[in-house]
Amino acid sequence: MTDLAIPLFLVVCGIAVLLVKDLMSSIMIFSVYSLMMAIEWCRLNAVDVAITEAAVGAGISTVLFLVILGRTKSVDEGKKHINLPALLITVAVAAVLLYGTIDLPHLRDASIAPNTHVVTPYYLENSYEQTGQINVVAAILAYFRGFDTLFETTVVATAGFSLIMLLRAGNKKPGALDKTGVTAIYKKTPASIGVKPTATFPAVLDQDKDIVKRTVTKFLIPFIQLFGLYVIVHGELGPGGGFQGGVVLGVSIIIYSLVFGFEEAKQRLSVRTKDLLVSTGVLVYGGIGVIALFLGGNYLQYSVLLPDPQFASIVGIMGVEIGVGITVAAVMITLFYETVRIDAND
C-alpha cells in the first residue's frame, strides 16, 4: 500500500508545483515533497539519505527560496501556457524510462545481480574484519569507494567556491558605487524598482525581537550541534556520516542567523573563517590520502596509517568523515551567508 501511496503523493506534489501560480505556494509544496521523499528514503532503509533530504530539501532549500523570493518582484504573467514540445519530450523520456523497467528485476528479489555478483558479498564479508566498520554503508562510502566520496566532497566545495566568486566579489568592486551612492547590484533589488519587498526581505538581515523564538533557538542550538557531531562520528555504527552531520551543523548556524540576525551570526562565525573551513575539510580528506601515500600505501589506503590495519582503518575513516563534515557544514553556511549578504553591503 505505502509502496504506491508515497510515490503517487510525490507525483501529485510534482504536478501541483507546476500548476500553482503563487511562488510561495510552490516553495511550500517543494518542502512537503522533500519531507515525503525523506520518509520514502527511510522506508528504503536509506536513513542517512533521509537525514540529508530532510535537512537540505525541506530545511535549507526552503529557507533559501524564501530569502530569494523576498528579493524578487512578483509579476502576474496571466494564464500559464503549456509548452507543447517540452511536454512531449518529458513524456517521451518518461516512456523510455518505463520501457527500460519492463525486464528490470524486482528490487526485493534476493537474486538480482547487485546482491549476487562478487562485489556486494565481498563488502558484507570483509567490511568488519578489514575496515572495522559495523555499518557496511560507511565502509563502502569512506573506504571501498573512498575516492568517490573525496570528490563528492569536492563537488560540494566547488559549489561553495563558485558561489563566493559569483555573488560576493562582484559586489565589492570599488567602482560599483554609482552617483546615488547605491551599489550596482543593490539597485536591482525590489525596493528600487517600486515593488514592495515582502516581509522576509528585512527579516533575514535583522534580529528577530520575538522573545519566544530567541529563547527556543538558544535552547535548541546546542542540541542540534551535538546531534550533528554525533552523526558525523558515529557513522561507523549507525546511519550517518560526514555529509549528514555536516548538513545538520550547518543548519544550526543558519537558524541562529535567521533569528539573531546576520550581523550577530558573523560575530560567532566570521565570513573569513567560514571560507577557510570550506577548504579545510577537503584538505583533511585529501591530506589523509597523501599521508597514506608517504607511508607506502596506495592513495587513501588507510590501513597503512598505523601498525594495526583494522584500527588504522577506523582512524582513517573517522578522519575523512570529519573532513567531509567540515566542508559540508561550511558550504551550507556559505549558501545562506552569500545569499543574505548581497544586501548587507560589507
Binding site: Y122, Y143, F144, G146, F147, N298, L300
Partner: peptide
Amino acid sequence: SYWMSGWEPPFGI
C-alpha cells in the same frame, strides 16, 4: 592499473 585505497577491482575504484 592503479587501485585506489588499495582495493582490488571491482571492489574498489
